[in-house]
Amino acid sequence: MELTTVWFVLVAALFTGYFVLEGFDFGVGALLPALGRDERERRTLLATIGPVWDGNEVWVITAGGAMFAAFPAWYATLFSALYLPLLAILVALILRGVAFEYRGMRDDPGWRARWDAAIVFGSTAPAFLWGVAFANIARGLPLAPDGDYAGGPLDLLHPYALLGGLVTLTLFVTHGAVFLALKTAGELRVRALRAAARVGPVAFVSVTAFAAWTLTVRASAASVVAAAAAVLALAAALAANRVRREGWAFLGTALTIGLLVVCLFAALHPAVLPSTLPTGDLTVSNASSSPYTLRLMTWVAAIFAPLVLLYQGWTYWVFRKRIHTGTADADHY
């Protein structure tokens, strides 16, 4: 396998890890006012993601860095074309991170309510905008002969992109609800199961429609298999949620998110950014760095990637237990 293809797969794997892990973070943040009926419950909800949310965001930083180093032309064109939605995502993530740290610093209901609103916005806005962004990547963008984006901001908001945003938003909320059912006990667990049961069918319909539409836009044998498997995984997750098997339900929603990302990247290859104009696509060949750069990056990744995975796996293992309302686990938030 050529190194350009290896790094295309690695970028896809990094985004897959990011959406699977950060997806439940976004879902928990979006559900904060709906499931947390008093301050103790809201602190408990935040404590479920408190030890891991910042580590989950490292995945997207690493994905962006890998894209920049391995495919600089892809990085430059994509981040200029999607400048406004990506800037909005960045601002929302910054606001969300500040809100996690600041909400518990004053014993003032108004103060906490404002930061809670920031958490909800900082969770729902990126959850929607990531779907818009990746739907545009899958569909293709109008690229000028020099590779620059030839469209405007409103050109990004076509029906396929809006459906993509609905998919990620509803799927992440479902993923977050199932995660909360897995991590909490008592009444909070019951509410989380109910939330997943209510949002899950909307996610299922939107995922099915988006997968079918994607395969009409561009498809490969691998993308067809991944799309079908994603729909089946979500159906299995919702069935598991109905019988309160939240561990299996969480596995199902995680697989759904991962398989959807695989579907999009498998449909793209060998392109990294298709053009809707007759100017030619950006591909793994014409958008990549030099062979020397790719070889050097491969050695670095081979050494450090396993260490990062081991550390993050250890973090999830340490904080694997359920969190009960009113315990010391939630005091910080």
Rank of each mutant, 00 (worst) to 15 (best):
F79H: 12
A92T: 12
L294K: 00
N286W: 11
Q312K: 09
L84P: 01
L296T: 15
V318C: 00
L180E: 08
S220C: 10
A81R: 12
A70Y: 13
L163S: 14
M67G: 14
V132A: 10
A185H: 01
I49H: 06
P291I: 08
E57A: 14
V28T: 05
I323H: 01
A239K: 02
G64A: 10
D108P: 04
V205E: 05
A219W: 11
L171T: 14
S223H: 12
W130E: 02
T16Q: 07
A113I: 04
T214S: 15
D38V: 02
G50W: 12
Y102N: 01
T315N: 03
A177C: 04
A235D: 05
A66D: 07
R112S: 15
T62I: 14
V205G: 01
L180N: 10
G110Y: 14
P85R: 08
R43L: 00
F68S: 02
W248S: 13
D146L: 09
A211P: 06
R242A: 04
V300P: 02
E39H: 13
T16V: 10
P72C: 09
D116W: 12
Y311S: 07
P72H: 12
S223L: 09
F250T: 05
T77Q: 09
W59K: 03
L166E: 09
V91C: 05
S275W: 11
F79D: 01
L93S: 03
A13Q: 09
L14C: 13
W299M: 00
G122W: 11
T184I: 02
A13T: 12
A237F: 06
I137W: 04
V262G: 13
V300D: 03
L35G: 01
S289H: 06
A192K: 01
A212P: 00
F15E: 13
A138K: 10
Q312P: 03
R218Y: 04
A239R: 12
P142Y: 08
V243E: 05
F304D: 11
A219L: 05
K183Q: 08
V52A: 13
L46W: 05
R43C: 00
S290M: 10
